[in-house]
Amino acid sequence: MSIFRKKGRSGEKIETQWSTAMRNFRKDKMALTGIAIFVIILIVALVQTMLNPKGWSTLTTDFAKPPSWHHPFGTTDSGLDLMSGCLKGALQDLIIAVIVSTMALVIGTAVGAVAGYFGGLLDSVLMRVVDLLLVVPLLTILIVMSNIFSSGGGSPLAIALLIGFLSWTYISRLVRAEFLALRERPFVEASIALGASSWRVITRHLIPNAIGVIMVNTTLTVAGAILLESTLSYLGLGIVPPAVSLGMLVQDGQGSATTSPWQFFFPAGLLLIIVLCVFVIGDGMQAAFDPRNARRRK
């Protein structure tokens, strides 16, 4: 309801859940460091890819050169600038992660909300679908599916949609559990007594009260998506050249890990740092949204 602005009419400051969470979050040095590193990587990757869009596709005569001023991350066996590749790959991974986590957020919340709020047969059917997706190892499905997709070119978007389509189960279970607890709360009944529709109850009351759980787990899905894409690319089932991802670079570089270690360690290290950053941010959000933590942290 956009009836009243968050700020009082008399101008007094209002403590919303968001502002409390953000205040807690700002005190969390680990999470702030995570965000800072993450943002720096993102900006560097963006700037580099924009200034030098052909960096990864321009062949040079420097074959497998160690890091130098000219090639800060060294070059690959085939004479490509590894820094361009790493940054482009990181950007590609992040785009995939955003698509995946958005899909997981939307599908997971919708399925969890419907299952948790309406219950009954609908809940049973939806949760069995979730169980099905959970028991069959995700990687197996992905490998089979990506084979089909790869024949179509293995485009980053196809990979993202594929992973996204399979990554919502975790969020849906959490949202369902949260809704099961919330729908028994008296304010939900009060709203129903007033004549609110199910849509209104879900969107105005239940989702705002479950937003902490949803946000935290969407963030964690980002990390999961990056790792999954890397795994797929590592297995050669993900992104296909000329597109590039960190997983693909790791796979390319692992053969030369002993002879020209930079080919392996730069992409792998970047991958590790990005995923770590996302986990730390997710952890920080978890603590920020949990009111019991708010007190302890003071």
Partner: peptide
């Protein structure tokens, strides 16, 4: 319990 904590 009967007031939504997330609503003014």
């Amino acid at each position: 319990g009967s007031l939504d904590p997330k609503m003014t």
